[in-house]
Amino acid sequence: MAERERRLTRPGGRVFVARAQVMDADEVARALRRIAHEIIERNHGLDDVVVVGLQTGGVPLAERLVRVLTDIEGVTVPLGSLDVAFYRDDIGLRPVLPEEVTNIPLDLMGKTVVLVDDVLFTGRTVRAALDAMADHGRARAVQLAVMVDRGHRELPIRPDYVGKNLPTRRDELVDVTADGVEIGELADERTAR
């Protein structure tokens, strides 16, 4: 979502400028490992568990999570990706276009779906994702894993697995990459550097 925020809230030519690193790469890796253990514990193993990353920021995290899960339990966990553009509630309010083609490789009927996103903010992306998922079959349960919960929810949505709770101002941005997690804000391109 951070990447989505950066790309879509930028019509004024504004860019993301990091102010501080809040997690380094090792900390992200450890958080991912803990989340993997929590998922296995909560679901008594990985039977019928499917991991689905949200485009775009959730997808690389979901891929990593699946590798860790496979590493721990020695079983293959199905992996999908979901683009929620057609299900958003802000179509017409700001530019919304699909980033990538959705890829859900199996019917979700009866599965336990772990949705993965990088940053949980207003909850609107997750709301859209729940609707989008419903079109791929009736999951038995849906759980939500995020690397950063930054607060400011606008909908009754809460995560099941959290890498880090990070208090933020509304106008700040959180960026999750392979190198870690950074917090910063949008600045005019000219003053940015």
């Binding site: 683009d83 553009a85 057609f86 299900y87 179509i91 276009l97 699909p98 083609v101 959705t102 890829n103 609707d131 989008a132 079109d135 791929h136």
Partner: peptide, 24 residues
């Protein structure tokens, strides 16, 4: 190219058992 990329997503939608999204 933008239109074609979005069309890729509609190709995926068409492959579903209910080929419809609530976008509009």
């Amino acid at each position: 190219e933008d239109v074609m990329r979005t069309a890729d997503s509609f190709r995926e939608v068409a492959g579903r058992s209910i080929p419809r999204v609530p976008a509009l």
